[in-house]
């Protein structure tokens, strides 16, 4: 029932999964830092500025400077805040983002070599590291559920900090969550009906016949809907109501500083990567494990979605909360339901 991917591959051991988890944690956290640099550079390019230039060549060492700042900044907990919840909230965002990443394919399978340059690798030599840390059959549902649970971070942060901007931020979190969650589920239901499975591996295999067999050609409406809902899910710009600086100072993150704020930040970037991975696998064919470049292709697709998020941030203004609710409930949800009905009729006939 598990591991539909594995036919003639080595067995997945507990050690392999642990190594995979460490790789995901390390690489995605680092990517979150690098993502800020890319974001600032891309935004600067689109607004005809230079962006970070002073620290290192092309401002590359800005990441290190920001990292040092985040880690060494004073960690302030407001006096009237509910201190326990205030401290837990950032961990919820970061942890759920990484738990969601545990059941999507990140990087190809590989086996750690027994020897490198004649030196035997102790302990981990010869361990098979799977591409999905936990290959469960209902991957898509689990990832969506975990990302939804991630919004408890901003919600609790806003409510616990005894700050009116925070309360507004968490009220907006609840509004946003209740609006987009329906659209995400309904939009991704149509591709699930076509493939007949909730497993990412099955989705990948169903689209193995080249560009012509990508699901985006059969489900363009669902793709656009999922993308819009994905922007809301990751709090990216057209829908970043939770911490819109011009309106509510910083929303739920108003009172946070240092690494607690950094954890929100890492969580947001990890969620962006997760949404990009889901969109690439469900609609754009995913990876092709039959040849080496297949994995490069999915990394390119993920990078494209990441770039798209930055592009949209540079190009579009924010929407108001009532506009978001109007969009989700009165426009996107009916379209998604009609899309499902049409898909169902086409499948049955």
């Amino acid at each position: 029932m598990e591991t539909t991917l594995v036919e003639n591959l080595p067995e997945v051991t507990a050690l392999g999964v642990i190594i995979k988890a460490i790789i995901i944690l390390a690489v995605i956290s680092a990517l979150a830092g690098f993502g800020t640099y890319i974001e600032r550079k891309v935004l600067a390019f689109m607004q005809r500025r230079l962006g970070p230039m002073h620290v290192g060549p092309f401002g590359l060492l800005q990441i290190a400077a920001d990292g040092i700042k985040l880690f060494t900044k004073e960690d302030i907990v407001p006096q009237n805040a509910n201190k326990l919840i205030f401290k837990i909230a950032p961990a919820i965002t970061a942890a759920t983002a990484f738990i969601a990443l545990s059941s999507v394919p990140v990087f190809p399978d590989f086996t750690i070599p027994e020897m490198v340059f004649g030196v035997t690798i102790p302990l981990v030599g010869g361990v098979f590291v799977p591409s999905i840390a936990s290959d469960i059959n209902i991957g898509i549902l689990f990832v969506l559920g975990m990302m939804a649970a991630g919004l408890y971070g901003p919600l609790l942060a806003g409510m616990s900090q005894a700050n009116k901007w925070g309360i507004i931020g968490s009220a907006r979190t609840a509004v946003q969550f209740l609006s987009y969650e329906v659209v995400t589920g309904l939009s991704i239901l149509a591709p699930i009906m076509i493939v007949g499975s909730l497993s990412f591996v099955d989705f990948n295999n169903a689209q193995a016949g080249g560009i012509g067999s990508w699901l985006i050609w059969q489900q363009p409406v669902a793709f656009v809907l999922f993308l819009i809902a994905g922007f809301a899910e990751t709090n990216r710009t057209p829908f970043d109501l939770l911490e819109h600086e011009a309106e509510v100072v910083s929303g739920y993150a108003t009172e946070y500083s240092g690494m607690r704020w950094g954890m929100f930040f890492i969580g947001e970037y990890a969620n962006m990567i997760t949404v990009a991975i889901i969109a690439s696998i469900v609609f754009l064919g995913g990876y092709d494990s039959s040849y080496e470049l297949g994995w490069l292709m999915i990394i390119l697709k993920i990078s494209f979605f990441f770039f798209l998020m930055l592009w949209v941030r540079a190009a579009w203004p924010h929407v108001r909360p009532d506009q978001l609710m109007w969009l989700c409930w009165k426009v996107l949800m009916p379209i998604a339901v009609i899309n499902i009905v049409v898909t169902g009729i086409v499948i049955m006939v």
Partner: peptide
């Protein structure tokens, strides 16, 4: 269970 109750408690 995860999806339903996360949404319900959020409401």
């Amino acid at each position: 269970q995860l999806i339903v109750y996360v949404g319900a408690v959020m409401a």
